[in-house]
Design a binder for these strands. Structure first.
Lengths: 155, 155
DNA sequence: TATTAATTGAAAAAGATTTTCAATTAACTC
DNA sequence: GAGTTAATTGAAAATCTTTTTCAATTAATA
């Protein structure tokens, strides 16, 4: 688990100054289980740190992305939605389309598929993007939706 | 292969009017092997149909998306990039990160993985997003990059 | 405590997307 | 082919989102 303190140390360790504004942004993202847009982060940060500028939030998000400390979540309307990187290595997301909660999973053996796709297409494959979407347990209970396994909508 | 004529018939068949502007947008997207942003589509369409409004392009893109005739490609900077849906059913993309070319593939057996992920997470999984990224053969030859198979950058 | 380079925030600029509304036109009827 | 009608168009304005600029502030170090 990446505490906001650990993150702070990483930031400082890399030679960046640790300002109250940065701390506030860190806390907000680190604490959230959902993916948040820059605007949403700004709104939340303002509660603990009124007067912070939206620019500062954008700059912090850029910094975190550069340091590879955040992930992007892929939603249907756009992909400007951030999430603290929880497993630090290779991993993927399962996103709840109802509440936005994101859960991670690490084991994804796509190598066979990748090999086949590479051979057929002639591409040198450099990376992949894999994300599952669905309803988390909680939202499922709320809405009374059916069992956990169903193949349906495809992005 | 979805010709621009077939697409035109679908549009008309669903009760939408087929205007010269719509035809022009259709031609541009249907003809391209790359994914195009609304702005790029606008630029191209203007060459055959000067005077078309950017709004019209946006509206056409919305219509095509509603009719499920386009796909979205997921890029690192944002996902407002469209592509004619070529296999009409379930499929995925391999995108060239250099030239933007997109190639499709249909066989993706994720059911085992999906089953496991669903059980572990408690999610009712409704869909998935899978895309490979890399260098197409042509770009590979241009830049002299290595063989086709490499596991690297992960989105 | 003084120094210094990084950081901040207001404001403006730049972009992207959506809304509004009067004028135009594709599709249909006769 | 002309008339009717509802859908479509495009200019302009309104909204949002993101980036740039620059003077003032401040964290980190000595």
């Amino acid at each position: 688990m990446m505490t906001s303190e650990k993150l702070a140390n990483i930031i400082r360790g890399r030679g960046y100054k640790l300002t109250p504004q940065r701390r506030a942004v860190l806390r907000v993202i680190a604490r959230s289980r959902d993916h948040l847009t820059p605007g949403a982060i700004y709104e939340r940060v303002r509660k603990e740190h009124p007067g912070i500028g939206l620019v500062t939030v954008y700059r912090m998000l850029e910094l975190l992305a550069d340091l590879n400390l955040t992930c992007r979540v892929h939603t249907e309307d756009g992909c400007r939605s951030y999430l603290m990187r929880r497993p630090s290595g290779h991993h993927h997301h399962i996103m709840c389309t109802s509440c936005g909660r994101v859960v991670d999973f690490t084991k994804c053996d796509l190598s066979e598929l990748q090999q086949r796709v590479s051979e057929k297409s002639g591409f040198k494959i450099e990376g992949h993007l894999l994300q599952f979407n669905g309803l988390c347990q909680e939202c499922r209970e709320k809405t009374g939706a059916g069992g956990p396994f169903r193949t349906g909508k495809v992005w």
